[in-house]
Design a protein around this nucleic acid. Structure first.
Lengths: 233, 233
DNA sequence: AACTATACTCTGATATATCAGATATCATAT
DNA sequence: ATATGATATCTGATATATCAGAGTATAGTT
């Protein structure tokens, strides 16, 4: 037993999804996809009978989504789809650039050797995928790269904020577009961020991360504009 | 009726506090004040009997606090005080500087004339208080100043993030310190931020706001260090 | 003494019931 | 015809009941 990788045969209880989680995802999707309109009144009982469950998990989901900014609850009135729920992709990415570059700065100071090693390993893997041109797998490792840096700050608040942003981003993408392939280009930027963290250079890490996300932002917006243009012609 | 200020005699339903809100505040305080330890298991039924209410509002409060990062819920295990709930004041302020400076940038673009006028009026009021040296009142207007800028972005996500940060900040302050007087010095910085927004200069507004918050951060940390020093000697 | 199986208990997850504010309807009075 | 009051209904807020997983203690077997 001792030589085996013990992590292999464990189960993470966090993978269990409660009804509440399912409801959260369903409503979030509903909002982002346009199934629910801005300002629409979401009724606990109505949703509960639609979904065939009781109101309790709905209630809890409301509180989560409210905290995320997707819903607004007015006491004794009800819960409504936030008027500004459809924050522009641009602002979401600006926010991400802002918070995540701060993470990179903190990571350059706080990341321990073990984490640094893992990050290095990841960069090597990404290099391989980059050379192979396997952008599907690269994409997945990319988000692991970002997550590692975020987690190394050991700052729950930032983890939560970025987690929320990612959720929304993800929901958006479903209907939006897949310029993700673009990100293959980002490989060199990732490597640079890693180097800055390794050198324990917070300013540089922050700046590089910011530039990286802002550049992908511009690309995403450009791609979206192009799509929009195609639709017109 | 027409000449009267109609806003005067309205009631904002949002001022009604539900049990859930009270529970949120109570638990947040409990965590920040150290009444609850990190990692402590918070039990719905226990809290409900302690507080003399049912478990439903407790449940909802849990979900809000979880989303804020104060609590962690493990499915089928329970809800626990986040191990890293006590994020340092420094990181909270770094985060605030980061997000709120982005708000200032957006405000310089998105703020409408009406809001701009209100901001200008506020700056004049603040100037008066500054000259009078009424730092109590100035403090209140200061936070209104920040709030106006945040709201003008019409970005719920940022509003929520900064709302959360403020809550936590507030809870911290209770046990922490009142270097708030310091902020009287910040008046000129506020005016500068306002000018940049008025000039529709996003870069400058962002930079000035960032500098402003980072400076107050340094002052707060210095004051805390001083306090710490006093305690030692 | 050690191991196992069963019962008991704790607790979160979910469902249901109750209460109270908000809104709409309608009738009645002026 | 309009204003006021009574009533019904919708819905969120809260309370309570039920269910099921997880842990623990206990008793029985070898």
């Amino acid at each position: 037993m001792s030589e085996r990788n013990e992590k292999f045969f464990t189960v993470d209880p966090k993978l269990v999804k409660s009804l509440r989680e399912l409801v959260v995802e369903k409503i979030r999707e509903g909002i982002v996809s346009g199934y629910f309109e801005e300002g629409e009144h979401l009724k606990e009982r109505e949703l509960s009978s639609m979904m065939g469950i009781s109101t309790t998990p709905i209630k809890e989901a409301f509180r989560i989504l409210e905290n995320e900014g997707m819903l607004v609850t007015v006491p004794r009135k009800g819960t409504f789809v936030s008027e500004y729920a459809s924050t522009s992709i641009e602002e979401i990415l600006l926010l991400r650039a802002s918070v995540e570059s701060l993470c990179a700065r903190l990571a350059a100071v706080k990341m321990n050797d073990e984490e640094l090693q893992e990050l290095e390993k990841l960069v090597l893997i990404m290099e391989g995928l980059h050379k192979k041109g396997d952008s599907e797998a690269l994409l997945e490792q990319n988000s692991r790269f970002h997550q590692l840096i975020i987690d190394s700050t050991r700052n729950v608040m930032m983890q939560n904020i970025l987690g929320n942003l990612r959720n929304i981003d993800k929901a958006f993408r479903k209907r939006a577009l897949k310029v993700e392939v673009e990100r293959e280009k980002g490989f060199h930027e990732h490597r640079a961020v890693f180097e800055a963290i390794k050198q324990r250079n917070p300013e540089q890490a922050e700046q590089l991360m910011k530039d990286h996300i802002l550049r992908t932002k511009d690309n995403i917006l450009a791609a979206e504009a192009r799509l929009e243009g195609d639709r017109q012609s």
